[in-house]
Amino acid sequence: MMPNSLTLELKDLCCDRDERRLFSHLNAQIESGQVVQVAGPNGSGKTTLLRLLTGISHDYDGDILWQGQSIQRHRALYLSQMLYLGHLPGTKKALTPQENLRWYAGMSTAGKTVTDTTINDTTINSALSKVGLYGFEDVPCYQLSAGQQRRVALARLYLTPAPLWILDEPFTAIDKRGVAELEQAIANHAERGGIVILTTHQDLDTQHFKNIGLRTIDLTDFAGAIEYDE
């Protein structure tokens, strides 16, 4: 069950890294049903922004509010409703896709909303078949191709009940059909009332996103030099 109204609010977000301003005065209100593409050239701070939103990094000024509450103060609550997919897949090569997902399930089932949908091997296998890994459940990941390993990570999207998805370059190493399926999954998630924030260098196929609000946050709009004086 997806809550009908969710908000992630970025308030006057400002981030410097190694004496370089990545972005400043970034204000945005992201709501249920929206797909937000964070755009900008290489080095503009897309990944950094996503890492701020996941709480992995907290070198910033300003506030990030989930349902009106600071994500730093209500960390466990926020994290139980968020899924993050980084550049790295976060899977162990020595393990099979199934084992990797079991670990993920154990690490993420925290909120009541999560435990309601019990994750077991059947749901894990069905998630794996949705990303085209049917028959590979018990093959160690080091025997899979780069694209397939990436798909193991993507299978999390079909397991998690988290309403907020943060995806950093999710289309990397995925073939054409996979990209279309992933876009569909993202669109479906937004239609169900979820939120997706993603970075990608590919253009999203707009026909998947006809019915939903596809937004862009262009970080070049928020670029600037560090103001060194008060």
């Binding site: 009908n4 969710l6 139980s80 670990w103 690490m107 925290a110 909120g111």
Partner: peptide, 26 residues
Amino acid sequence: APATDTAPLEIPDINLWSGFAATFKR
């Protein structure tokens, strides 16, 4: 901030050992 139509936020009912067990097993 969240008005009446907002779903109430649940405090996660954290099972301390679930993360421990999953990571240990992995």
